[in-house]
Each structure stands twice: as C-alpha cells, then as structure tokens.
Design a protein around this nucleic acid. Sequence first.
DNA 1: TCTCAGCGTTAGATCGTTCCAAAAACACTA
DNA 2: TAGTGTTTTTGGAACGATCTAACGCTGAGA
Lengths: 362, 362
Amino acid sequence: MPRTPRSPAPQGPVTLAMVARRAGVSPQTVSNALNSPDLLRPETLERVRRAVDEMGYRPSRAAQALRTRSSKLIGYGIQPTPSGTAAPVMDRFLHALSQAADEAGYRILLFASPPGEPTLEGYEELLGQHEVDGFVLSGTARHDPRQAWLAKKGVPFVGFGRMWSGRQIGDWVDVDGASGTDAAVEHLAALGHRRIAFLGWPRGSGVGDDRAEGWQRAMRRHGLPTRGRRAQSVDDVDAARTAVKPLLDAGATAVVAASDMLALGCYHALRERGAVPGRDVAVVGFDDSPTASILSPALSTVAQPLEAVGRECVRLLLARMTDADAPPERVLLEPSLVVRDSTPGTDAGPDGPKAPTAPDAP
Amino acid sequence: MPRTPRSPAPQGPVTLAMVARRAGVSPQTVSNALNSPDLLRPETLERVRRAVDEMGYRPSRAAQALRTRSSKLIGYGIQPTPSGTAAPVMDRFLHALSQAADEAGYRILLFASPPGEPTLEGYEELLGQHEVDGFVLSGTARHDPRQAWLAKKGVPFVGFGRMWSGRQIGDWVDVDGASGTDAAVEHLAALGHRRIAFLGWPRGSGVGDDRAEGWQRAMRRHGLPTRGRRAQSVDDVDAARTAVKPLLDAGATAVVAASDMLALGCYHALRERGAVPGRDVAVVGFDDSPTASILSPALSTVAQPLEAVGRECVRLLLARMTDADAPPERVLLEPSLVVRDSTPGTDAGPDGPKAPTAPDAP
DNA sequence: TCTCAGCGTTAGATCGTTCCAAAAACACTA
DNA sequence: TAGTGTTTTTGGAACGATCTAACGCTGAGA
C-alpha cells in the first residue's frame, strides 16, 4: 500500500501553531482565516488555506470549547419507553434531530433518563460540567419540572411537545394533533362516512385531548353528531378492543383513533365480530408507527413530520442561544394523513366515493 | 421570588483554583482529591471535599478533555432505518448503550449517518476534531469499510454485530441468532410439533444465515427433516406472505421466522386461508419488536438481550481504550425466547403437550 | 555519618484555541 | 516628507484543568 512518505511520524495532532509556522504567519492569523476570513488579505488567506489542507489540520474541539465556553453539543435525555405520545417513532426523531444538528455544526449528546416521570438529574450533571450548550426535551409530562428549572437557570432549551398545564415556558415545537384528526375526519367524510367515532385516551392528557378536539370540530363543521361516538382507553391493545365495542355497536362506520395502538385494538374488535377493517369499518390511526404499514389491511394513519420537527427544534434552540431574551417562539407543524387500505378510497369502484353500507347490527 | 442572598454574582463557574483557595491548598491538591484521593492525608481530603461541595464545584469537561486528550465521549452513527437486522429495536439499544456509558462516566455522541451503506464521513470528522474517544458501530454490512479503517488508525471501537465476511477485525458483541432459533425449535418440539418450517431472508446475509443455521441444527438433533421446509423472502410483509405459502401447503404445523416482519407475513398467509395463527399453525418471530406484543394472537418471538449488549459494548470499548494491544475480545450473548399466544402451550389443556391436528389441506 | 526513597503537597509548565489591544503595513492626502 | 486613517497582522494573556519535577522532612539502610 503506497503511503505518502512525507510527514515522518507527525507526533500527535496537527495544531494551529504548526499550520502557522508552515504558512509563515502567526497562530492568530490562522484562527482568523478559519473564523473570520474577511479579515485577511486574499493572498494571505489563500496561503493559510493551502497550509491547512496540506497538513490536514482540524481544530481541536476541546480547546475551542474551553476557550469559547461552548461545546457545540446539545443534550437529549433518552427514556426507555415513555409509553405516551410518540414513543414508537422516537428513533426516527432522533435521527432527524441529529441530522439537523450536524448541519448546524452541533451534535446530539445522549444521556440516559430513568423511566417514568422526567427528572432533573441528568440535566444538572451535564450543565454543571458545561458539557452542553442546551437541551432538547421530549416526552413533556403534566407536572414536568424541567422547563421551569432550565428557564430559571437561563439554559437554552426547546421542547418537542408544548406545555399543557401551567403557563407556557420557553420555546417549543409541536405537531398539531387536532389538525391531524380533523384531516382524518375530512378524509372519511369525503369517502361518504357520517357515523365517525373517536377512540381516544382518557381525558386529561394534553396530547390526547388535542387529538380529540380535532375530531370534534371537524364533526361539528360537517354537522355530524358527536354524542355517544366517543370512547376512551389507555394505550393498550386489549383495553382499546374493549373500549371500542360500544362505538361499533352504535353503528359507527369509521373510527378515528388517537394512536396506532388504539387503532389496532379497533382492528381486533372488528375481527372478533367477523368484520373486516377497511371494508366494513374504516379505521385511522395516529403516529405512523412501524406497525401501521405492516398491518393487514395497512393502517391509514396521521404521520408526524419528524424531520421538520427536528429541524425546527434545532433552529429554535440556536436562536435562543444567540439571543436569550428574545420573545419565546412556538412552532406548530402540520401532520399529514397517510392513506392506506384501512380507509379504502374511490379505486374500489369507478362510481366515486361509495357510501359504506352501514352494518348497524353487530 | 426569594433568592439566596449569599454568593453575590459568582461571576462564572466555580473553578479548581477557587476551591483550592477556600480549602487552603494548592489547585493540584484539589485535583488529586478528586482523581487520586488516596494520595491525600485523610484530614486534607476531608477539608477539600467539604470545600468542593460547599461551593458546588464541578470540573469542566472541556478543560479536562484538553488536558487529558480524552473527551469521555463515544461516537455512534445513527442511521435512519437500515431495514436490516434489529432496526425495530434500535431505540431500546440506544437507551441501553447510553445507560451503560453513563455508568462508566462516558456519554454517547450521536451523529447522523446517511441511509444505505455505512460510510466513513462522520467517523473521519469526529476523529479529526478529537471529539470522541471511540466508536460503537452497528448495522455491520457485508463490505463494511469501517472496521478496517478504524483499526488502521488505531481508534478504539466495538461492533454490535460480528463481521460476516473477510477476516475478523476488532472486538464485537453479538447475539447468538442460531441459539435463538434453536431454542424456538426446541420449544415447538416440546409442544409436539414435528413439521417445523423456517422462513428466512435470502441467503448471503450473515445474520439471516445464522438464524437459519440454528433451526437446521435443532431439526437435525431431533431427527426431523429440513428439506422442503425452508423458504426465503426479503424483509417485507407481502413478500413473506407469498413466500411462506409453499411451506403451509406442505403441511407445516409451525413456522420459525427470521424476523417479526416475516412472522407477520406468515400471519397474513394463514388468515388468507382461514387458519388462525397459534391455533392451527404455531409461529415464532425474531427481535421482539414492539409490534410482536400487540399482534393478535401475540407473537412468540426471540428477544435480544439489548441491555446486556449495551453493557458489553461499553465494557469491551473501555478495555480496548485501556490496552490497545490486548487480543480482540468477542462476546456472543444468548437471546431469550418470549412465549406468547402464537405458540400456545400446555395451559390449553391438562393433558400435556397436545400434538396439533395438522391441517394438511389448505 | 551519609545517602536515598518515600511522605503529602506544591509551583510551574502545558494542552490548543480565541480574545484583546496594540503594532505593523499600507494607502492616501496635505 | 510627514501626517492621518484604515486595513492587516501579531504578541500576550487567558480558558480550567492535569502532568512533571520538585519541595522539605523523616527514617531506614550502608
């Protein structure tokens, strides 16, 4: 293997000073060449640049961090399975976040958060050691102490998920759940459905109530009744299966669920009574979890724009780092409806949206 | 808001020198108190310790990194969805890894890896800037350049997943897939099954062949034929549904699949012919993806010990950092079979393992 | 008696970068 | 030519920790 015979045992990494010596300038000038190139005379800049890539110089992040008091790292506390909102798609979010951060010259630093209610432990430690410049929070809980604590300390942070209780603190990015379920109802109504039920989580969870709200307003807009068309269940398949029964008994021809998990419970309930999801009763889920696409029939669901969420999180966080006193910014992103086989459309027949033959009897 | 009137504007963070002044010792002694406490006289140690927590001192990671040339960070390139091996459980692995790292005083630094074949880009950048002390690799591909490249540079790394082609490079931790499918066969045989089929990925993937191997050897051990009992499909539900048909036609009473996705294809194929998974034909998946537990019937599957994998990854990596020339260490961990409703056991009746009535005809 | 290793601690240098202020180089005008 | 103002470049001092080589003293071994 032919290796370049130059640079005999470089003895450690290339430093700014070495580059400076080679380019015949002072270390400071090299630093300027990299950080404020417009300060240099073009020919000097060129000379320094050449030296930099001839020697393969890369600034040491540790030294930069020490000097500038900024690590260019963003902390993210990863929880095992919050079992709440968008847990099934957390890995996708993490990738999106990483990518957005990378593009801005930042990186994501993971730390393990214990299961259950979010605690301050990890945050405190990372901050004390000046390991990170800011945080991205997710899995915002009801009495989440993190936002207030970070705000009091003046630490930049951004939440994925708004604050549902108390007054708003800090910046956040969230997905408009109501808009998602609204779109689901629109879609179903366009297919001719009128008895559209909602299967949600127990009241009191911000995310769940938001999603219920979208269903409700869309129903009202279409002049459709909502009474007796709503049931609730914890995020568990069996519980959902049981909870949805009354809705089916009442003759619902379509069910909008607050999560894919609940939607799956709905599938089971339908099968139990010999009905076929999609054909007999339309079902729409929420989250576009990996499971949704592999079910049979594939589940129509509301997908969160995770890439956009990641981008916005990073954008807001950087803005907050730049100006700590800027007014808080809150971004609400539109989810998108992914139509699959559980809400069959017009391609089932040439005669337009077919009104499903409502099986009133179980 | 009542604030403590003490410490009037501490003006930046508490440093070693401040603690030293307060404790009436030199900075180095404070450093020793923290890093090699046994060097100090007990009373001095006590005095320094008191000063440390009175002032709430935390060493600056940036300064430590600069001086010790070690960032205490472990790099992990996160890919969107390698769609290969254990993709569905990557978030659990990440949490396990983070936790194990935290306990060892390290943290995980994420960087976004582009989809598809792993590239060296991100690794090169992190290394050049001395951002990380080592890497954890996952999603080892067939012609993966990363191991050889890192090894040549003398960078500590550990792979989650062994190397399937070429010669072994470096340390790795992996899960014994063969042992998992072997256990699945054992379990099925104990239930009375004899016509146990295998639905795997196309030959040539190391992970897939490994899982096939376990099935095969267990079958041989029981004197059961394997010819005509094996099919293959890419990791896609529909493809799997098609691929498994001949096996069912041939009268298989149980199917061991190389992934939960394939197992689900099997569910669909069974339903298509009016059979019920678990009751008519037993199915075992692999990976214990979130989907497995919520299917109906819930899918028996082989679970990877991700917490243990995370721990071992960190352990091997630290060992490698300590001694770069130690002989490579490879750890093969045992997966565990999670029995659910798709392989109903003896509780179906009091008369021991019941031989399923084999529905030879479709 | 003399040397020397060991005790717990310390002064001083060092890691690689950026900030600050001042020096040097340059371009004009008077 | 000197004077003025504007780039362009530089030396020196941090940033906050750890490493090395001692400090002055005691007691064991030659």
